[in-house]
Simulated assay, not measured.
Amino acid sequence: MRRVPWPLLPACGALLLAVSCGWGQAGEGDEGRAPGAPAGVTAQAGSATSVHVMWNAVPDSTRIRAYEVYRGTTKAQEVPGSQHMVDVTRLRPSTLYSFTVRARDTEGRLGLPSRPVTARTPALTAADRSAPTRPAAPAGRVLGAREVQLSWGVSRDDRGVVSYDIWQGGAKVHSVGGDQMAAVVTGLRPGTAYVFTVRARDAADNLSPASAPVRLSTPGTDDGRDTAPTGFTARTHRSGGAYYIDLAWDPPRTDGVITEYHIQLDGTTTTSLVWGGTPPHGRSTYSFYAGRTAGEHHRVRLRARLPDGTWGGWTPQRTTTTGN
């Protein structure tokens, strides 16, 4: 999900330079060239030791396997092709950094680097345990079926606010600099109710309490069918005298990374599956305990928490039998 600060929106295009090594911009239907350079790249210090980097998806994004984020000439992060933002951490305080982003396609070709963007981390203040105050008077308005504009009042901190984090439900969906009191959040779903809150962060990574909620509903309709995981299967196996249910699925195509799923067993939500690190690329699998009795029938399905913080559609329900 691509989100851009407001009112300074990045340009829709980017200047691409042809270089002697032969890199070229991939166009629609052009399978023989490396990907083009990501556009709309921004970098904003999130604390004294982290910078939040965002970018737009390159054209023909279905061919993109991953994005690589470089700090100078060093690769700092690699994220799945569905993800267009990342926090680069373990940085030094009071330091100016330059970042570029490159796309790698499904054939392994590494594309042109984006234009470089810079961000300076603030000084680290020793023994700062005082969190900023709660952002005041948050407000919002709907701009369309897939985007909203949020604004809030300044948060106070004895050492200064470095950034503001925007949350939707239980998911962080955006971050802007401490001198910005507004943002546009895009990549939302039509016909969906959202609850946004804002939290302030200082250089020592102290977080303020959440602001009052801003409740907005996007116009239109969305039945959720395109947000459900696909290729869902459920089987059982026996190990150590017990039976386990084995699930497998392909994540839904979204503009962002999916890290959490709800699993429903026999009509009741059994557990939430949360990836502790980077989610696996492509097909996912998960097994859980189902008891020691053979011949028991179980109905199971799952859904994903989408990058905009809402829950997507359920998979079709599958029935499996222990010991079968």
Rank of each mutant, 00 (worst) to 15 (best):
R3E: 08
P5W: 07
L9I: 13
A11Y: 12
A18R: 13
A18Y: 13
G24P: 00
D30Q: 08
G36Y: 10
P38E: 12
A39N: 10
V41G: 06
G46P: 08
M54E: 14
N56R: 14
V58S: 00
V58F: 06
E68G: 00
E68R: 02
V69D: 08
Y70E: 08
R71V: 03
K75N: 13
Q77Y: 08
Q77V: 10
E78G: 00
S82C: 12
S82R: 09
S82F: 07
R92D: 15
P93I: 07
P93G: 05
F99T: 01
F99D: 14
T100I: 07
T100M: 10
V101I: 07
D105E: 04
T106F: 05
L112W: 13
R115T: 13
P122H: 01
A123F: 04
D128L: 05
A131I: 04
A131D: 01
A137S: 15
G140L: 02
R141G: 11
L143G: 15
G144L: 02
R146E: 14
R146V: 11
R146F: 00
S155P: 03
R159N: 15
I166T: 10
H174W: 13
G177I: 07
G178Y: 02
Q180M: 12
A182Q: 13
A183E: 05
G187V: 08
G187D: 06
G191S: 04
A193M: 10
V195S: 14
V195E: 15
F196H: 11
F196E: 07
R201W: 09
A203M: 07
N206R: 14
P209T: 04
A210G: 12
S211R: 01
A212W: 01
V214F: 07
V214R: 09
L216H: 08
S217G: 12
T218K: 00
T221L: 12
D222I: 10
P229F: 03
T233S: 09
A234K: 06
T236I: 04
G240F: 05
G241L: 05
A242D: 14
Y244N: 00
L247W: 12
E260V: 13
Y261F: 14
L265N: 08
D266R: 11
G267I: 05
T268K: 11
T268Q: 12
T269L: 09
T270D: 14
G276V: 12
G277R: 14
P279Q: 02
P280Q: 03
P280T: 03
H281T: 14
G282D: 09
Y286L: 06
Y286M: 00
H298A: 01
V300I: 10
R301G: 02
R303M: 03
T310L: 02
G313Y: 02
Q317H: 07
R318I: 01
T321N: 06
T322L: 01
